[in-house]
């Protein structure tokens, strides 16, 4: 992605290659993420989306390539990055409360041995308030709904007061209210010049929620502002030609003049999320040009 004027470079990825047991999961990814964007990462199953953000978070060692957070290595900048993992990555029957989970976000700042105190409690409660979960502070996490659990994870990230937020499918399996609440929150963060990188599972809402998108299928297919990059052609390249499209503009041009404007920036597509998962192995890449 070319550097946009007036923005800092939050994340820079160069030639990132990650392999698992000699099979490549990510090939030679180059990406520049400016600050103050809401970027989605989309791609079929097995495309390496989770691997990608884990590589940025220094959870996975790449076979080649470099990653820089505001110009420095992750281990020098970790206080600037907050991670919201997939909801399924923890056992929610663990004996702990929402407040407790959020306070774990402050452990890094506390360092070794120090216990969280009144100050940490206050900060954690404030974060819970921001996600509307203050009434559930002492609730055992197994008693929370999916959407509530997701909000707790989000609060845990908020409390870290980071510059960059890496999220893995935060909208997966949450109710509509929670989804709206999350996207509102993300937009607020963006307005404060925070950088949000979100692995997203639902092609239908990419255009509505995000301003930048990265199309990934082991290789980088394309990345940049949604109007430029989120095109039918690119989606076909990413999903191997098995995506059904519904065009929003042709039929409604009479009723909704707004859609005509979108033509100018390239077609706004809402893909009827039927991207086939099995297409992950057929990263069409250059094949479809024949």
């Amino acid at each position: 992605m070319p550097q946009e004027p007036g923005k800092r470079t939050a994340i820079e990825v160069r030639d990132l290659t990650v392999a698992y047991r000699e099979k490549p999961v990510l090939w030679d990814i180059d990406l520049t993420v400016p600050s103050g964007v809401l970027m989605a990462i989309v791609g079929p199953n097995g495309a390496g989306k989770t691997t990608f953000i884990k590589a940025i978070l220094d959870l996975i060692k790449p076979a080649a390539g470099q990653i820089r957070i505001f110009g420095k290595r992750y281990d020098q900048q970790r206080q600037l990055v907050a991670y919201v993992p997939q909801r399924g990555s923890v056992d929610w029957d663990f004996p702990t409360s929402s407040l407790d989970v959020v306070m774990m976000g402050l452990y890094g700042r506390l360092g070794w041995f120090r216990r969280p105190g009144k100050r940490e409690r206050r900060l954690a409660l404030a974060a819970l308030e921001k996600v509307g979960m203050q009434d559930f502070a002492d609730r055992q996490i197994s008693q929370l709904s999916g959407g509530q659990q997701q909000r707790v994870f989000l609060a845990r990230a908020l409390v870290q007061d980071a510059e960059i937020y890496m999220m893995d499918e935060p909208f997966q399996g949450v109710d509509a209210t929670t989804e709206r609440a999350i996207i509102t929150l993300l937009r607020e963060l963006r307005a404060a010049d925070k950088t949000l990188v979100v692995v997203h599972h639902d092609l239908q809402t990419v255009a509505e929620y995000f301003d930048h998108v990265m199309l990934l299928n082991v290789r980088l297919i394309a990345a940049g502002p949604v109007p430029e990059v989120f095109t039918e052609e690119n989606l076909r390249l990413t999903y191997g030609g098995r995506v059904a499209f519904l065009r929003a503009d042709d039929d409604e041009s009479g009723e909704n003049g707004q859609n005509l404007e979108s033509d100018a920036a390239g077609q706004q597509i809402s893909a009827a999320g039927s991207a086939s998962e099995s297409a992950s192995e057929s990263a069409a890449g250059l094949r479809t040009r024949n």
Binding site: K54, L57, D58, L59, Y83, P85, D91, M104, R156
Partner: peptide, 8 residues
């Protein structure tokens, strides 16, 4: 509870 988060 969440070792990966702990690493980050």
């Amino acid at each position: 509870f969440d070792p990966e988060f702990g690493r980050t």
